[in-house]
């Protein structure tokens, strides 16, 4: 069951060396984000990990938190640090059913 997740209650998901200690990992298996919505604090990062069998291209164009991860192959992970408070819509440019929201608090 996908659900609203607050970073403050999330225990670390271990990834390879280099992942920030407190990052929440968003996975993408089956062309679905592992959560529909997440709350983090400004300056905190999320890890987008492609545990799916196909490439994804995760992006946001929400003002102040724009990013484009490019083509992310299966087995790849990338951290994204959100700088502006507000709400960022995250989508996969390739797979239009993949959508989630990041709420960034001050």
């Amino acid at each position: 069951m996908r659900k609203l997740t607050s970073l403050s209650f999330v225990v670390l998901v271990g990834l390879s060396a280099g992942a920030l200690a407190a990052n929440l990992t968003i996975t993408q298996k089956g062309r679905v984000f592992s959560v529909e919505s997440v709350i983090i604090k400004k300056g905190e990062a999320l890890t987008f990990a492609n545990d799916d069998s196909v490439p994804h291209n995760i992006i946001s164009t929400s003002k102040g938190n724009e990013f484009n991860l490019g083509s992310q192959p299966p087995g790849a992970a990338t951290d994204v640090t959100f700088k502006e408070a507000g709400e960022a819509q995250i989508v996969c440019a390739i797979h239009p059913r993949m959508r989630m929201t990041v709420k960034i608090t001050d």
Binding site: L15, S16, G18, A19, A45, A49, D51, I59, S60, T61, S62, K63, G64, N65, E66, F67, N68, L69, G70, Q72, G75, A76, A77, T78, D79, V80, T81, F82, K83, E84, A88, Q89, V91
Partner: peptide
């Protein structure tokens, strides 16, 4: 999203892609 095509991708900080 609104104004999608006109935005550049620079505001959030993206780390290096790594293998898991």
């Amino acid at each position: 999203l609104i104004g999608f095509a006109n935005l550049s991708f620079a505001a959030a900080i993206v780390g290096e892609m790594r293998r898991t």
